[in-house]
Computed example of a mutant assay.
Amino acid sequence: MKTCPRCESSIDDEARYCVDCGAPQTEAAAEELDEYVQRQAQQITGDSGAGRDGSGFGESADAADGDGFLSTEELTDREQLWRRGCYVAGYGTVVVALTLVPQIGAFPLLLGGIVILPPVRRLTAGPLGSPLKREVMAGLYVVLVLVGVALLQFL
């Protein structure tokens, strides 16, 4: 058995990749991995413009990862301000709702606070096929907060 030059773990003599770190062990495997990485990079750069063409993403999506969403560095100042405002409103509403938990109106407030948080938008993208627009999220927030406030006032 030979050892991996990258992580020094024991591997089979015929192994093309290390089972521990994934490093290619042959020249052919290294070329294959390089081609794969280049194809993935082209696919990502080719798809990155799809978010701004009205295909459901509309404005930039509120997430910081590589699956169709823009990172924080790529957001405009206005979009960063919107995201920060959503965090403030969401967490503030959640805190207020948690202080009112025994009352029935706290639950719509809690849901409203959760709905406005930017990560929820990313989480809805999987089941729905595309993230909800931020206007929809803000509308849900307003409706849930109004229902919660009404329940707190009248019950």
Rank of each mutant, 00 (worst) to 15 (best):
137 M>P: 00
139 G>W: 05
19 V>S: 10
82 W>F: 11
119 P>Q: 14
77 D>Q: 06
86 C>E: 01
104 I>N: 14
150 A>F: 13
38 Q>S: 05
120 V>F: 08
130 S>R: 09
103 Q>V: 12
145 V>G: 04
131 P>L: 14
79 E>T: 13
91 Y>E: 07
70 L>I: 05
7 C>D: 13
60 S>P: 04
114 I>P: 06
70 L>R: 03
27 E>R: 02
53 D>T: 01
48 S>R: 05
103 Q>T: 11
140 L>R: 00
78 R>V: 05
154 F>V: 07
68 G>S: 06
54 G>E: 02
3 T>A: 12
140 L>Q: 02
135 E>P: 05
34 D>W: 01
51 G>S: 15
20 D>M: 01
132 L>D: 07
47 D>P: 01
146 L>P: 09
10 S>W: 12
45 T>V: 10
105 G>W: 10
146 L>M: 12
56 G>M: 04
53 D>H: 02
89 A>N: 08
98 L>I: 00
69 F>K: 00
137 M>Q: 08
116 I>H: 07
3 T>D: 09
153 Q>L: 11
5 P>G: 13
138 A>Q: 06
68 G>F: 00
122 R>E: 11
36 Y>K: 12
118 P>K: 03
47 D>I: 07
72 T>K: 01
133 K>V: 12
96 V>F: 10
152 L>N: 14
86 C>V: 01
136 V>E: 15
19 V>H: 12
27 E>T: 01
91 Y>F: 14
97 A>F: 10
13 D>M: 00
92 G>Y: 04
23 A>H: 03
146 L>D: 07
10 S>V: 12
70 L>K: 05
145 V>W: 06
82 W>M: 10
112 G>W: 05
44 I>E: 04
122 R>N: 07
74 E>D: 03
54 G>D: 04
